[in-house]
Amino acid sequence: MSDRLSQLQEAVDQLMEQFIATYFYIDRHHDLKTFNPKDTIAPSKADQPPEVDTLPPDVFQAGQLELARDLITREQQIEYLISSLPGLDNSEQDQLQSIKELEEELNVAEKQRQEAVKEKDEVLVKLDQTLRSIRRY
């Protein structure tokens, strides 16, 4: 999973793609209107593909509704991602400060870890010796 910033950028790119898809859907499937009673809709030429592929009004409406819903959902995703961006309440100085502190703590913890490992090894050796002596006996 990528970080939230990349997710957000991807979501925005997808929104753009949805814009384009929606635009072309409407551009492709709208119906034709006349401006005044004398106008006629020219019949499409047989040797060319028709410019618009008019859908029945209810199908067109349903398609628009679906696309609009998708757009809104994507928008909500984007806003959710925005509000979940991490660390908005830390300034750069704070961050550097805490990085430094963490580094020191890490060093201390690492030393402690090594001591603990050493201690464990020593005790293990002792235990081992004891067990061996028991077996020998």
């Binding site: 910033l5 991490p86 660390g87 830390n90 750069e92 963490l102 890490l106 913890a109 690492e110």
Partner: peptide, 17 residues
């Protein structure tokens, strides 16, 4: 974000250690 992630990683490492 990168700094924030670094902090998070270090915190995890610290907990692990």
């Amino acid at each position: 974000q990168a700094r924030e992630q670094l902090i998070q990683l270090m915190q995890e490492r610290l907990d692990q250690t």
